[in-house]
Structures are given as C-alpha cells and as structure tokens.
Design a protein around this nucleic acid. Structure first.
Length: 157
DNA sequence: GCCAACGTTGGC
DNA sequence: GCCAACGTTGGC
C-alpha cells in the first residue's frame, strides 16, 4: 500500500476566507475546489486528523498563516449543485458528483505569517515542494513530515 | 495592473 | 486526437 501524506497545504485568498475566518467559525467545508488533482487529494488521500497549513494567496504577504486539521471524510461539494453559486457546475450530476471536499477545523493561527519568500529561501532544505515549483497553481497539495516540521520551526525563527 | 504559467474548451 | 484560444491563478 502506498504511503499517504499526513500533512497538507491548502490555499485560500484571505479576502475570501482567511485563518481569522476559520478561527471565527471553527470549522468550514473547503468548497469551491475545481481542479481534479486538488480534488483527488481531498477525495482519495486525506484522512481525518491530517494536519493542514492554511496558505494565504493573492495578498500583500503570501504565506502560511496557521494550522488546521482535516475534520471529515470526503463528501460531495454542495455548491456544485447550486445554480446561484459561483461554483455551480451544470455538468455535475447528483448521482455522480464531480467535486468533493472535506471539512477543515481551526487549530492555531501562527504568531506571524511565514512568507513565501522565507519558504523559498530554504528551498534546498525542503526538497521537492509543489508550492515552490515554477507556475505552481495547485490549491491543495501534500506536505512531507519533514517539510511540516521545518516550516513549523521557521515560524519560531 | 501586468503577465507567465497552467488547465480546459472546442473546432477541425 | 491535436492544438490554438481562452479563462484563471497568483506573484510581483
């Protein structure tokens, strides 16, 4: 059996949904992912209790803003069936939903945002990391245990 | 606001 | 099945 990652990074634009939003609500369905690779990670590989870095994108200081954990098994993203939703997908059918998600629960806001520039500066210690790959756009990606620990230490640095 | 990179769509 | 056009992402 293939080893599953126990750690993840999930991107969000803080104007839409931030670590503070998550702290406020406590728990949130991670709706709106419309990329098959990102969906597959949520649908097939995530397990309840897995650790999640919450990453803020498209903002003045892009970087990791805090920690969450996977709080549910995967289930169909309800927004795909809502005609008024930005995430409505007319091609998806209830008998065979195309888009799946998991719930995410708030764990901790970082004392400071660990910036993308800082993470990039230690790229050689992190090894292969999708976030740092050229043209990276994936919004849900695996993080190795070593990367998880290294980035947690960076917060305190 | 710009633009490079990427995924998806659709004509053929 | 190819690939140009298009829309989106996301850092800068």
């Amino acid at each position: 059996m293939a080893a599953k990652s126990n750690y993840w990074l999930m991107k969000s634009e803080p104007d839409e949904f931030s670590i503070d939003s998550l702290a406020r609500v406590g728990r949130e369905p991670w709706s709106g992912v419309r990329n098959y690779q990102a969906r597959n990670y949520m649908m097939k590989d995530m397990r309840e209790g897995d650790g999640v870095f919450i990453y803020h994108s498209s903002t003045a200081l892009p970087g990791i803003a805090g920690l969450a954990e996977v709080a549910s098994a995967a289930y169909p993203d309800p927004t795909q069936f809502l005609k008024k939703s930005d995430y409505y997908d007319p091609a998806s059918r209830r008998e065979e939903p195309r888009w799946w998600l998991v719930d995410i629960a708030f764990k901790r806001k970082f004392s400071r945002v660990v910036g993308l520039d800082e993470i990039r500066a230690i790229a050689d210690r992190l090894g292969e990391f999708h976030l740092l790959q050229r043209g990276s756009r994936l919004s849900v990606m695996p993080v190795s245990a070593a990367q998880w620990q290294t980035i947690l230490a960076l917060e305190k640095a």
